[in-house]
Amino acid sequence: MKKYYGIFILSCLAVIVGIYQSATGVKEYTPMWPNLPAPIGEEPILITSAGQGAEGAVVHLMVKRLNLNADYRPRALATDLYEYKTIILYTGFSKNGVNKTYRDFQEEKTRIRRMITYANHNQIPIILIHLGGPMRDDRRTMDLVREALPYSNYFIGKRNMVQGKDILDITENNRLPITLVSHTKDILTPLNSVFR
């Protein structure tokens, strides 16, 4: 029986960690503004990334599906913004993605900050999309969200989040419209309402 002691202790620990995680982890959040009252964006649109997560291409696919005039440029700089009338910023930190651009996290953050400053100065609306939900809820992604969210004009995210409360607090404090959806495909409706 002694040979099962170690495994038994380990399994108990795993169960405790599992219970702890499901208690503190993903929760469902409901937004205050379920929909956007009036369109706020205009074409042409720049789709760019905050954190270089590979899944950002999904945003491009959706925008294409809505037949909107948009460019997908994950690594765009502030100097590229003059051509566009709306920015869609999707958040999600990917170490591998940032690595591919030969930048580091701080540089990526600086790029976002410059872009936001330029956009706010020129009154270009920023739509923030957080696709990852609980899968992209890490410290660095949330850092980027905190950087961009107060200066954005609209937030679209997932209902299931770990850090959802932070996001709700920021949008409430800044009186930002916010829409949270259950499925990725559901983003299409609020996204459409931004432009039409």
């Binding site: 997560g53 590979a54 959706m62 999600g92 170490k95 990852g132 899968m135």
Partner: peptide
Amino acid sequence: LTRADLGSDDFAASLKVADSYLSE
């Protein structure tokens, strides 16, 4: 199993988000 905090590493997250749109 995302609920149990499984697969929040970079590629797994990307793959899952991609699939959530491609095939739900």
